Amino acid sequence: MGYRNDLLSSRSIIRHGSYALITPEGLVNNIIPHFEKCRISVVASPKLGASFVQYLINMEAGGRNTKGFGGDGIETFVYVVEGSLDVIVDGIKYELTEGGYVYTPPSLTMIIENNSKEGTKFVLYKQRYIPADGIKEPWVVSNNVKNLEAIFYDDMEDVTLIDLLPTDLSFDMNFHILTFQPGGSHPFIETHVQEHGAYLLSGEGMYNLDNNWVSVKKGDFIWMGPYVQQATYAIGYEPFSYVYSKDCNRDPEI
């Protein structure tokens, strides 16, 4: 990267235990065992205050993880932002392209490989699964957002939502894609127990994080902790869209 060519500055905001905005300009590489030919940024972890770990990964052609990722009570999810990726779960290969994803339940692991001639960029996620009495374990899910129906969010025609995982009690989490047309917004500022990890896929917006309005755009990552006030509206000339996680379907422990 070499010498700087401007003042040292950043749009990133870190509020441990509350929320974070992490911009791509400040990401650094992390060396993690069993990942080859990868540039890995850990954007959320318990050190920040999150209950999950989320990575942004650029994998070169021929890159892979050489040991199963997840399992032993840890559920995992991978979403392809750019390029293509092969994901092997329980001996079955899922060939993913942009918008493709795989969810792997806590009893299984995933192997990730880039067998193409180009680099690929993807979101990787893991969290500890919370079982529930009388509820069966979740199952492998793979699809592409291009195959899924978008529904109007709270009956607003300029905001759409796509569920990536089944709305079934076996799943204690989900991933969604929320898209706002220019000028679209949440209907109100939300305050809830769920936390989110959101990767911004396109466009620009103004985001309310703990009642602080900040500007965000494609390539940013946002972590929103439990009960942090949150809402957004789209600005600019193209749709504002992001893929985000949500914990769900479980009664909070005391």
Rank of each mutant, 00 (worst) to 15 (best):
N174G: 15
I111R: 12
V140G: 12
Y153T: 00
T179I: 04
D154I: 11
L169Q: 04
L165C: 03
A150L: 06
G119E: 13
P105G: 12
Q127L: 10
D154H: 13
E118K: 09
N147E: 15
N174K: 06
K136T: 03
I151H: 11
P166V: 05
T160W: 06
H176N: 11
I112M: 05
F152T: 11
D158E: 11
K121F: 08
F122P: 04
S107Q: 13
P131Q: 08
P106R: 12
D155Y: 13
T179E: 09
L164R: 09
D133P: 06
E113K: 14
F122C: 02
N174P: 02
S170K: 15
N114Y: 01
T104Q: 09
S116D: 07
P138K: 09
P131W: 10
S116Y: 00
S142V: 03
F122L: 05
D168R: 04
L108W: 01
D154L: 14
T120V: 08
L164Y: 11
S142N: 12
L169P: 06
T120D: 00
G134D: 09
I135D: 05
I177C: 01
I130N: 10
P105A: 08
N144K: 06
F122I: 01
K146Q: 13
E157P: 03
H176R: 10
M156Q: 15
W139E: 14
